[in-house]
């Protein structure tokens, strides 16, 4: 079977495109970095791809709010292509600035479970960290094992770096959160690494820096009602190998004991990308 084709967007200040493309290739994907304007101009079509990744970066410098201007370009110029992509059951991931873009296009969290296809209405936002600072620091994440998210199946807890100044997830009211929680769309949260695995998730705000940004309900990432579209602020691609984990120098970096690509050196972040590639293969 041919490797699933992955479109990794770049241009206008996206800057994690190289590594995002690389991690898909490590798990059997066939990725290509493609400038956003190729899709806007119609040179290339999203239809030719099976996975779409919107990587991290500083699209348009994050002026006027992170991800907003890129979100607008996609909302206005790629509306039909994106709708068709999700309708065709193809996965999309947005990481960091990519998550901000997906939230601002309205792809995340998207409409409810009864009519889950994109309507491009913004329902949530990612705003300035409570600290007021951009920071690069490692956090611990725990995943909702009942989430419909196809990207996170089987992943329980991982360490990842966050690298953002605007990662505080907000929605207008608690009922908005309750509705997402009921659908298990609050896919991934910041947790205290000292909590027992499987019991870390809490709605009560964790103190800084366990929650690096003051996110409501400690939300690090969410999915849409289909489980195909997923976004998160932390960078799983930045821990594709154990040698990128700060503890590798102490011989205590967590991760799988063996892997088909990196042997004993696979990092905890790679599984997410493998999940999407295998999902696509399973649907063929």
């Amino acid at each position: 079977m041919s490797a699933p084709k992955v479109a990794v967007l770049f241009g206008f200040g996206i800057n994690c495109d190289h590594e995002t493309a690389a991690v898909f290739n490590l798990v059997g994907g066939d990725s290509e970095r493609i400038h956003v304007n190729h899709f806007v101009s119609g040179n290339r079509s999203l239809e030719d791809f099976e996975i779409l990744a919107v990587p991290g970066g500083f699209s348009f410098g994050d002026h006027l709010g992170s991800g907003r201007l890129m979100g607008n370009r996609m909302r206005f110029a790629l509306r039909e292509q994106l709708h068709a992509f999700v309708a065709a059951g193809k996965p999309i991931i947005g990481i960091c600035n990519g998550f901000q873009v997906l939230v601002k296009t309205g792809l995340l969290p998207g409409p409810g479970a009864d009519g889950p296809l994109p309507d491009f209405v913004q329902r949530a936002s990612l705003t300035l960290n409570d600290s007021g600072r951009y920071e690069d620091r490692w956090v611990t994440l725990e995943f909702d094992d009942q989430s419909p998210c196809i990207w996170t199946k089987g992943i329980q807890r991982i360490d990842c770096p966050v690298r953002h100044g605007e990662g505080k997830f907000v929605m207008p009211s608690t009922t908005d959160f309750d509705a997402l929680a009921a659908n298990h769309q609050l896919t991934v949260r910041y947790v205290d690494p000292k909590s027992p695995i499987g019991e870390g998730i809490s709605d009560q705000p964790l103190p800084f820096p366990l929650s690096p940004n003051g996110s409501m309900r400690n939300i690090a990432g969410i999915c849409d009602a289909t489980g195909l579209v997923f976004g998160l602020m932390p960078h799983p691609e930045a821990v594709y190998a154990k040698w990128l984990h700060p503890d590798h120098t102490r011989n205590t970096a967590p991760g799988p004991l063996t892997s088909d690509t990196l042997g004993e050196w696979e990092g905890e972040g790679l599984q997410m990308f493998r999940n999407a590639v295998q999902y696509v293969l399973s649907k063929r």
Binding site: C16, E19, V23, R137, H235, E237, A238, V239, W243, L244
Partner: peptide
Amino acid sequence: RQYDHEVIAQTAVK
């Protein structure tokens, strides 16, 4: 810590 020191996913000693 306010500098991104690990974009590009390559920084093995931070």
